[in-house]
Design a binder for these strands. Structure first.
Length: 269
DNA sequence: ATGGTAGCACGGCTA
């Protein structure tokens, strides 16, 4: 099974680009973040015409998540109660006996921002939701733009100089630690090389600016977090950097699609 | 060094 997570930074702007991706890479499951489209405005035909089933949690202007799957999606759930404040950041569905939770976690802006309070609260709610609705014994995969870089080698900047920058900051690392303590493993830590970034920024501080992709100035925040039963099934992770470049004049997203190769679970009797 | 880019939607927010 070829499972992809990809923050497309507007499916409206990236429609043709995503179509080219589907035709070239033919993923079994594609988890997309940042649709920036209401559910009924999503161009469903680009998926259904290629044989995909859909689970969509859209939102106008910002956020929005979607799962496209070659196999049927069961028990679709959208939203994070008590945590997302009405923003569309979670869509879950069961495919081939595996529970997939596609997440677009809040970015948080700066540590002094109310958005950072929201980010930390989102993770509290996510942990509660998991504990209430799922168990670590089941095959479950959280994937998506988690917006936290787990280890020092997952950010390009000097942590001696900037130990508390949002995306790798003690307060949110503590939330991630609690999330993983539910019984989840970040597969990228063993299946990717250090410095194999998935997002290359364009904004913020003056020394973060411009040519970041070219000079490899990124972070690893697009993650696969799985329960123990799935670990032996995970074969490889591939960051498809070629899809971070222009294609036939089409502009790329600022995130790179990340592919996980997973062997299927045995068929349940 | 407080600029720069992209997207939504048309002024300002979000990333």
């Amino acid at each position: 099974m070829k499972i992809v997570t990809w923050n497309v930074n507007s499916l409206k702007a990236r429609k043709e680009y995503v179509e080219a991706f589907l035709d070239a890479e033919k993923p079994d499951i594609l988890a997309i973040q940042e649709l920036k489209l209401e559910t009924d405005k999503v161009p469903k035909d680009i998926f259904t015409s290629r044989g995909y089933h859909l689970a969509i949690h859209g939102q106008k202007q910002w956020n929005g998540v979607l799962i496209a799957s070659k196999k049927e999606i069961h028990d679709i759930h959208v939203g994070l109660p008590e945590g997302d404040e009405g923003q569309s950041r979670l869509v879950a569905g069961t495919i081939e006996g595996i529970r997939f939770v596609n997440l677009y976690c809040p970015q948080g802006s700066e540590e002094t921002s109310p958005k950072y309070v929201y980010k930390l609260g989102f993770f509290d709610a996510l942990i509660s939701w998991l504990e209430k609705n799922h168990s670590k014994e089941e095959p479950i995969m959280l994937l998506g733009d988690i917006n936290i870089a787990p280890r020092p080698c997952d950010v390009y900047w000097d942590l001696q100089e900037k130990p508390s920058i949002v995306t790798h900051h003690p307060a949110e690392l503590q939330k991630l630690e609690r999330l993983l303590a539910f019984g989840l493993t970040d597969l990228g830590q063993s299946l990717q090389e250090e410095g194999d970034f998935t997002f290359f920024d364009y904004r913020s501080f003056w020394d973060f600016r411009r040519r970041r992709f070219r000079y490899d100035l990124g972070v690893r925040i697009d993650l696969f977090l799985v329960s123990d039963v799935l670990i032996p099934h995970a074969k490889s992770i591939d960051v498809l950097r070629t899809w971070r470049h222009k294609k036939k004049g089409m502009k790329p997203s600022d995130h790179v699609p990340v592919v996980l190769e997973l062997t299927p679970l045995p068929i349940q009797p």
